[in-house]
Amino acid sequence: MAPYEARVRIVEPGQPYDVGLLDPALVADEWEAPRQRPHVAISSDQSPREVLRARQWGVLDFVRSDVDVAELVSRIENVHRRSKNPAKRSGEAIDGAFLTPREAEIVSLVCRGKSNAEIATLLEVSPNSIKSLIRRAYRKMGVTSRAQAVGWGLARGY
Rank of each mutant, 00 (worst) to 15 (best):
D68R: 06
E124Y: 13
P127L: 01
R75W: 06
T100Q: 04
V150M: 12
W31A: 15
F98G: 02
S145Q: 07
E92V: 15
V59C: 04
E71Q: 11
N85H: 13
V143E: 07
R146A: 08
A28C: 00
A28P: 01
L123H: 12
L109M: 12
S145D: 07
R139Q: 14
I76D: 05
Y138P: 04
P127Q: 13
P34Y: 00
W31F: 15
Q148E: 15
G142T: 04
S74T: 02
D95A: 14
S126N: 08
A120D: 03
P34N: 12
V73H: 08
T100F: 01
A87R: 10
C111Y: 06
D95N: 08
Y138D: 13
P48F: 00
E124S: 11
A149R: 07
L52E: 14
Q36T: 08
R64P: 00
E105T: 02
I76L: 14
P127K: 09
A28R: 12
R55S: 11
E30H: 12
V67I: 13
T100L: 09
K84Y: 03
W31H: 14
G91A: 02
Y138M: 11
R146L: 13
E50S: 11
S129P: 00
L52D: 15
V67C: 12
L52M: 12
N78Q: 12
R81N: 03
V27R: 02
T144Y: 03
A87Y: 11
P34W: 00
R102T: 15
Q56D: 15
R146C: 02
P127T: 10
N78H: 06
P38S: 03
R49L: 11
A120E: 06
V150K: 05
E71A: 13
V125N: 07
D45Y: 01
V67L: 10
I42E: 07
V51G: 05
Q36E: 15
A41N: 06
P127G: 08
S115L: 01
M141G: 11
A104P: 08
R102L: 07
V59E: 00
S47V: 10
